[in-house]
Design a protein around this nucleic acid. Structure first.
Lengths: 256, 256
DNA sequence: GGACAGCTACTGGTCAGACCAGTAGAACTT
DNA sequence: AAGTTCTACTGGTCTGACCAGTAGCTGTCC
């Protein structure tokens, strides 16, 4: 449960401006790319001091809603939603935790398996084309080594997430992929190129693409789980692997 | 892909303080409940103006890392991680979107099913006791009406999430539950008490508890999906329901 | 007419200082 | 020991100054 402080009697000066701007963005009155009034105009508009306006700007920037540049006379620009706030929360929760890698992998498996299922249900022909192209880029990247291949692999997953048509899933999955990448990029580079694993990954992703094309949501979801486990499972200490394995094997077709 | 601005040549005055404080929290040097130095001491420590210090404080507050109170001579307090940043992102992404309810339900099903699976793998005896107590509170709340029952139901899910031992899953699930609650609380209250549905929900949760007690991860995961679909599925327009249904039916035991 | 350089009137970034409402904790009283 | 008062701080807000940076206008050259 989130901790609660006593309800404020009246809002602080900067909060009034934050709420106003957030409301205008949420209602679509301010769109991505639009500019806010300059700081001195907001001073006049809200009848507050310029430092209160600047405090509000810092909050909106921190939340990924706007960006400003020194000297730009056009005012701060409204941004599209980003994974940055979630990245920050993930960092806060997993930093230096002994089980952080397995929990990040669990989180990623959770999100990507649903993204795959949704992509199978909601995908368009244009999505399929983008998936084809992304897979082709993986084949090219395979010849360039592990680092390029990892990047192309992340791109493929992102295209799948876009095909899911679920922005929140997409941004969440992006955030956790970036966190995992940062945590283990050194380890992956140390392990050197593993061409066989890259080849199997491409085959897996081809299967995912086929399942999405065939609108087979269950197969797409299952493949996300087994693929992630095969690619990353060896990085998890054996005693921590049970939970990840349980998730990976959920919905497996019966053996035989 | 998050948009990128040109790399800054040097950090802004407030950013130096934000980074310093974040690093000290991440390394454990500053713990939850600890106090930061007061603003005027940070001015001296960092050699910057007090308005720059205050801008840094606004950023740290906005990210849920600290809280301050007017007049408190002890300085800002370090908070435990909260769902607030994710709540804000969810609001940004789903506000006034026509498909926001189904996407929120999908997100919640995604997270809670994994939380159930993890809880089955990682739960302790203390967790089981807390789950027993949470279910008992649901039985009591049933007699008090739908609003009390909904709250007790949310509490039960949160106890399950705690038993998962996965803070990120727990906070994410909490954020999406709160968002759904806010979106449909009026609708639920309008529909009046449905004692039969409340009774079935309790039965479902008893099955979840049994599956967690039996360490049956797959059953626990499956029950989260089917239960959410049964409880909320009717609120989703038929044409949007396919994706949710596909997720709900993943991993279903064969009929018969 | 287009490219380029220079200029200007702004912008955001940072700071110092002032003042006020609010708080913790010490001192005092009962 | 409990309650009240007082004080020296705190955070909240504001004003004004100054500076580096930018967009866009103007003038020149080809």
């Amino acid at each position: 449960m989130s901790q609660s402080s006593p309800a404020p009697v009246k809002p602080r000066a900067f909060e009034t401006i934050v709420r106003h701007v957030e409301a205008r963005v949420l209602t679509g009155e301010l769109k991505i790319g639009d500019r806010l009034p300059g700081e001195r105009e907001l001073v006049t508009q809200f009848g507050v001091g310029r430092s209160s306006v600047r405090e509000a700007m810092r909050v909106l920037e921190s939340n990924g809603m706007i960006a400003s540049r020194p000297g730009d006379p056009r005012g701060a620009v409204v941004l599209s939603p980003t994974a940055a706030p979630l990245r920050r929360l993930i960092t806060r929760l997993t930093h230096s935790s002994a089980s952080s890698l397995v929990d990040l992998l669990i989180y990623r498996m959770t999100l990507e398996s649903s993204a795959n299922s949704l992509a199978a249900t909601r995908r368009s022909e244009a999505d399929l084309l983008r998936l084809d192209e992304a897979l082709e880029r993986m084949r090219v990247a395979r010849l360039q080594g592990q680092a390029a291949f990892s990047q192309a692999d992340l791109d493929f997953h992102d295209v799948v997430a876009q095909a899911s048509g679920h922005a929140l899933l997409q941004l969440s999955a992006e955030a956790v992929r970036q966190s995992i990448e940062q945590l283990i990029s050194a380890r992956i580079e140390e392990s050197g190129d593993d061409d066989e694993l890259m080849q199997r990954t491409i085959e897996h992703h081809q299967e995912v693409l086929t399942a999405i094309r065939d609108r087979d949501a269950h197969l797409a979801e299952h493949l996300a789980r087994s693929s992630l486990f095969e690619y990353y499972g060896h990085l998890v200490p054996v005693q921590q692997r049970e939970a990840l394995a349980a998730l990976a094997s959920f919905g497996s077709p019966p053996a035989g």
